[in-house]
Write a protein that binds this DNA or RNA. Sequence first.
DNA 1: CTTGACTCTCCCCTGCAGAGGAGGGTTTAC
DNA 2: GTAAACCCTCCTCTGCAGGGGAGAGTCAAG
Lengths: 133, 133
Amino acid sequence: MRIGELAERVGTSVKTIRYYDRIGVLTPTERSGSGYRLYGEDAPDRYRFVRAAQAVGLRLGEIREVIALRDRGETPCRFVAELIGARAAELDERIAELEVLRGELRALARRAERLDPRSCDPRLVCHVIDTGS
Amino acid sequence: MRIGELAERVGTSVKTIRYYDRIGVLTPTERSGSGYRLYGEDAPDRYRFVRAAQAVGLRLGEIREVIALRDRGETPCRFVAELIGARAAELDERIAELEVLRGELRALARRAERLDPRSCDPRLVCHVIDTGS
DNA sequence: CTTGACTCTCCCCTGCAGAGGAGGGTTTAC
DNA sequence: GTAAACCCTCCTCTGCAGGGGAGAGTCAAG
């Protein structure tokens, strides 16, 4: 099938499919004589794999490596497991950071309610945000 | 003081201060005859305000609006409180999303341990990641 | 044989917060 | 008077995942 049909079948844009070809995560099976990208029947599944991998936080560059491994005949499972582990650890860190930030925002919101705008120091921008100085 | 001294006093780069001028969050008090940016004594505090506001998740575009409000003689406290509230709500959503994702990653990691690489379907890329099809 | 839909490559644009460097003018100290 | 340090504007680049459009070639139906 050609690029337009593939895009429509999986519900994405032609631009995206071309982009995936360019970065090597979804290359066409072959090219027609006039240069059109031609995709086999497995292309929708490949596309869905890319999307599913993105959905669990893998980046397209990593997905490309997984697919390259696979195309060299290796089973990328261990590599995928490593990527997922790394992403999970990053996620833990990120969530912890955001929770700290959320705590600070809550404190700030309470402070903003308590403070009287008229008590604002004209030399500072806004007393709600503490500059530490 | 000139830009280099300000940058050194607050511990940042000259590039950053120039950028803050360009986007309007930290404009110099005046310019010298030769075009040099000249900053008053309150510049370090203004800079620290910008950084503190960034630290609680405000974007420079929003900080600019806060400062513009302030420079028009208004007290931006209510506006700041709104921004902080909005940011807190976004944060709650984001954290919830990440926690869902973390749960999925955990499940995936367990699945990857259980699965035998040799059981991989050769037509698919990797059975660890479920494409839903 | 022509029209319209489809496709190609190539290049620029987005958001965010700057970093890096070119090519030139200014100030300060010796 | 000159060398070092400082400053200016302007331009491009970063990461990530594409979007928008120009200009040209291709394919199928009527």
